[in-house]
Write a protein that binds this DNA or RNA. Sequence first.
RNA 1: GCGGAUGUGGCGUAAUUGGUAGCCGCGCCAGACUUAGGAUCUGGUGCCGAAAGGCGUGGGGGUUCGAAUCCCUUCAUCCGCACCA
Length: 932
Amino acid sequence: MTKVNKLEKTRKMEYNFRDVEKKWQHHWQEHKTYRVFIDHEKPKYYVLDMFPYPSGAGLHVGHPLGYIGSDIYARYKRQKGYNVLHPMGYDAYGLPAEQYAIQTGQHPAITTEKNIKRYREQLDKIGFSFDWDREVQTCDPSYYKWTQWTFIQLFDHYYNRKTQKAEPISELEKVFARSGNVDVDAACGHITPFTAVEWLKMNEKQRREVLMQYRLAYLADTYVNWCPKLGTVLANDEVKEGFSVRGGHPVERKKMQQWFLRITAYAERLLEGLEHIQWSESLKEIQKNWIGRSEGATIFFPLKDRAESIEVFTTRPDTIFGATFMVLAPEHELVEQLTTDQYRNAVQKYMKMAGTRSDRERMAEVKNVTGQFLGGYAVHPFTGKDIPVYIADYVLAGYGTGAIMAVPGHDSRDHAFAKHFNLPVVEVVKGGDLSEGSYDDKEGTMVNSGFMDGMDVPGAIRTVTRQLEEKGTGKAQVNFRLRDAIFSRQRYWGEPFPVYYKDNIPYVLPESKLPLELPPVDKYLPTETGEPPLARAKNWQTDDGYPLECNTMPGFAGSSAYYIRYMDPKNNNRLASKEAVTYWENVDLYVGGAEHATGHLIYARFWNKFLFDIGVTVKDEPFQKLINQGMIQGRSNFVYRVKGSNRFVSLNLKDKYDNTPIHVDVNIVDNDVLDIEAFRKWNPEYADADFILEDGKYICGWEVEKMSKSFHNVVNPDDLIEKYGADTLRLYEMFLGPIEQAKPWDTKGIEGVFRFIRKLWRLYHNRDNVFEISHEPASPKEKKILHKCIKKVSEDIERFSFNTAVSAFMVCVNELTDAACRKRDILEPLSVMIAPFAPHIAEELWHLLGHKASVALADFPVWNQDLVTDETTIYPVSFNGKTRFKLEMPADSNRDDVEKAALAAPEAQKWLAGKQPKKVIVVPGKIVNVVI
RNA sequence: GCGGAUGUGGCGUAAUUGGUAGCCGCGCCAGACUUAGGAUCUGGUGCCGAAAGGCGUGGGGGUUCGAAUCCCUUCAUCCGCACCA
């Protein structure tokens, strides 16, 4: 028989995954098996994956890891009787498509659509149980209508600190007309107090300017990294040493008007909410640090001979008598006034230098102390002494008030600055040695501090804060590191703002004008005058001729509420109906990468809290439980080229030659053995390569690196599905290790689960590959195998330990094979149980067993505890903690029986060696330990 | 610098509450069936040792009858955040 015939015969004799998987994928799609509706008879469960940005490269093997995990859980919950919402969609706005558009002139919508199509094909092949009827795309006008709608709501609301929630601006206006703003406690920008009379006297423009300080979406000036050559704003990591990473053009800091979201209003609630959600402690910690709550005081230092004062925030008001100088951020508004003529040149020089450096660079050079004296002085609120004022890089405009009182005795950065500029260092808290460095600890007795002398630090903080409040020169203050989110992007491929300008005042469009669709443009670049690309659009104005906003929204806009839209994706009248949000509430399980810890996961929580305040959602937190899937790293292979030749030397011989390691495509390496022919074909350069082999093979080296095209270590799921099938891929991805752990991808182990799938199939089929099962009742032994597996798998799924669940299936199938069990009683529940992991083969077996409905809706089996309990217990008997032999005892033996039997066992004599045991520890059901 | 993890066979890992360290799989070794095997099946496989036995969860110390698991200390790797007043 020829080789081909043999192969064909073998194939016929085993599980044909290609046909089976195709058949069921088609069937599921046709019958909309996974479609879901509100069903008040069933409890709901919402399983969500972070939706992907459809990049041009398609999916690699790392992307579906989380999707597979969540799909298993969703399928499991469905079989447990829940009504499961498990949707998927696309985060379709993004820079790569825009960049591609700039280069090729092709509209980003076209590339995006193409990429989505490719993603969908890849996803479909893996057999997910998504309800695709609920798909959303953030760039679809019917979707971003609601992104724009939410923006309008943010614009029309302010945050009332008294009620701790967002309330309509219209209500605020009523309050202003009644009693001015003095009684209003709101999250707002800088605003001077006014009375009702003053409010009523203001014209529309003045009123709108005041209101802008209160809105949750507001316009304000900020400094950005502006690249005139690219005509665009760059992110911190797009700038290196004052030049753009792309193109190397100079970048300057430019003041620019941008939209902001007042996320800081929600800082306290964002922090508090963490207490009520099931996220990993490490992730909560990251969010806590990001929000960065700190308690302290704001203190006003009056300027010498002037009316103004410098406002500082400090966590250590107790050290105020140690404040020997003050430092402002270079951008601080009082810099100009405090600069004396004598220092004007130097200050300007310093500011210019600081201006060319990005925040990131300023932060990177910690050891480099720089700064400049302004010439001006402030006055110490308690001693009345003059305090020199400096500007320095190490004070950031965006944190606190952008100014500090410097206490070199008790702050290491102030100390370094004082040493550098020869400024006095005063000790106010005893406990350190100031000649060595600052003493930053909060323990010690106050000295040199007037009324605080002799107090401990916490007492001093309380006392000085009270004093400041009485004097009216300061107050207790909670400060957050969190900053308001910049919400404008000078880009094309994003949601247009539903905003127009009348007399330079921004107004939002009425809801009836939504969606405001993204207009076509001739080029995707900024205009020559530096306007964003939308300025190129023809007639970019309202019907009345008022110009529309030219900025677009950032990526997080569309991804902040998509989970709500999935609940009711086709609704034209609301983001989602009241009925839908009341039923689906929020996401029970959210799965995605930890890289979104401070971006998406903060913004979405904020966005949701706002929607909660205005009654759109019913839960304060959007994502009840969160699992971060670990990153799948690549496992790169290397060949070693002998320098100056086209010879390659095998791994263990390489040190005998002067060689260069070269990445080689992992797809032509099997078990670290290079496929030499494939290598020659891989790159024409190597067509004539020759090899120094070991044991007749070329062995490649390997290393774990990021999975990336440039390292030639990308593994494509399509190839694996073609070779092994989707069920095998799903099982293998789970088998790799705990879902939350980062781990390298190595294809070689996939054969093991492939064998398992075929072994499973053979349980239901005879030697001729014909379906054949027995209807005899199962033996107790067989039942035990099954029920142990049900227990283990159920418990493992509940705790997201999918790798051990796969292992339990393998044990079960091995044992059933050994027991030659082909009984329906056993095999039927087994096919149901494996369906979440390997849905295709499960569906096929389920139908072969005679069922008509999908296995996806079959009840997940329940284990019987009596069947899994062993009648005997095997006790390991140890002497001084070392296990020496095993003792089988009836499971209900009591302590004494076990002890007696252990000491009486023939093996025990050897270890006792005639001695009397000092103590015998018996843990019933577990262990015996004899101490001698 | 701060914070968060993680260190277990050649490799991925398991050990759910302090109770037999190494389940399951890969790889490797041997064998069976084969003209053949990159198919399938069977057995073996932590390390040292001929065996008895000893040693073993990054290193060192501790608590305990008993530690991969708890405590202290140290080293290594990875990931966040980074002059936060």
